[in-house]
Write a protein that binds this DNA or RNA. Structure first.
Lengths: 209, 209
DNA sequence: AGTAACGCTGAACGAGCGTTCAGTTAATTA
DNA sequence: TAATTAACTGAACGCTCGTTCAGCGTTACT
């Protein structure tokens, strides 16, 4: 699951302690990163925020980028952990899709600051770690792909085989734009209306008439 | 049009020279920013790139952020200058929309690195200047809104009044995702196929059946 | 009790970088 | 031709910040 956690070395031996301290680090860093951005946040601030010395902080990470990886990983797995168990593929494909969309869009609304941060700071990661974030995004997309495929098999949806992937991406992006374009959308629509309208129009375009 | 240009002070008197030098600055900076990001690009690099001393560079700007503003402004107006004159609202609303989508999406494809940069570095701007970027984005959205409104009046499109804005945003975001999500999309679709599929599905959901 | 290992501390290091400014060159004016 | 101004130069300043390291307290083992 979390590739990165295994890869970040630490000079501390106690595995459990590493887990605990890293959670503290992430908790402190996530807030600061989201508020001030990665580059503008200093190691000293992070350490201070949960009352640890800079030296100790460096016992649990190697570089500042490690913290960014931990934070991105945390955001990603939070989203996935909350979407995945709630989504279910039932016989009623249309309803499955509507449910999945609602769950995903609500989480985006709740974590909008985190989502925006994730997308804007991905570029600060090394190539290796950026790939990992993309992989994670593809996993999320696969959830919607599966629902769509199932619906096509059931003949509830009518989508060309090759366009299923694209439709899944559209669904995801139309959710994420609620965060990205909040300066325009959130003053014109409520979340409820947004979810309803978007899912209706997505369904419209894939349902067999 | 370019609010920012007027606001950035310079100690050089010759207005024309300011124009020339700033174009050189932007040309050098845009490449470096896109390749390395704003924070990782140094003033020295920018100055060196077009053979000017650091001191002189500072005769034409006040701070590093000024360069970012100039670059963002440049990207924005490039996109707009290329879309606006090509778009026309004809009697055939559906065709107008298809044309506009194709023009916009092709420019995104061409300037994808710039588009990604613009969205990722917007956050490095001050509140004031960020607002300006959003304003610019709203102007672009308005182009699509106008086409949609016209189509609704002509009864070619069927969209609830309140949802026209949302549809316009959807169209824009579905174009931009060609850049944002290129790691997934561009290995599965050609630009031509992408444009065709997306515009077909957009049209599908707003055309009166 | 002595000693080793572990986790922790924060001052100090040093590189990087935005910004300035004393001075040079070239053009314009008196 | 002398004096003034405009444009330019790049070394130097000063500050920030990631990272290190010599040393301290505490626990566990012999």
């Amino acid at each position: 699951m979390s590739i990165s956690k295994k890869e970040i070395e630490s000079s501390v031996k106690d595995k459990e302690l590493i887990e605990i301290r890293r959670k503290e680090i992430v908790n402190a860093a996530v807030d600061l990163f989201v508020r001030k951005g990665f580059h503008r946040t200093t190691i000293r601030e992070i350490a201070q925020k949960f009352g640890m010395s800079v030296g100790t902080l460096y016992e649990y990470i190697r570089t500042k980028e490690d913290i960014l990886i931990l934070v991105c990983d945390y955001i990603n797995s939070t989203v996935r952990m909350r979407v995945k168990p709630s989504v279910e593929i039932t016989k009623d494909s249309a309803q499955s899709l509507i449910n999945a969309i609602e769950i995903y869009y609500r989480i985006i609304d709740e974590l909008q600051d985190y989502i925006i941060f994730l997308y804007q700071e991905t570029k600060s990661l090394s190539h290796e770690n950026r790939k990992y974030i993309f992989k994670s995004e593809e996993d999320m997309t696969a959830i919607f792909e599966d629902i769509l495929k199932h619906g096509v098999e059931q003949k509830s949806f009518k989508i060309e085989e090759k366009n299923i992937l694209l439709t899944a991406h559209n669904i995801m992006v139309q959710g994420q734009m609620w965060a990205f374009r909040r300066w325009a959308l959130q003053k014109n629509y409520t979340l409820e209306r947004y979810i309803e309208t978007q899912s209706k129009s997505i369904l419209e375009q894939i349902t067999t008439h």
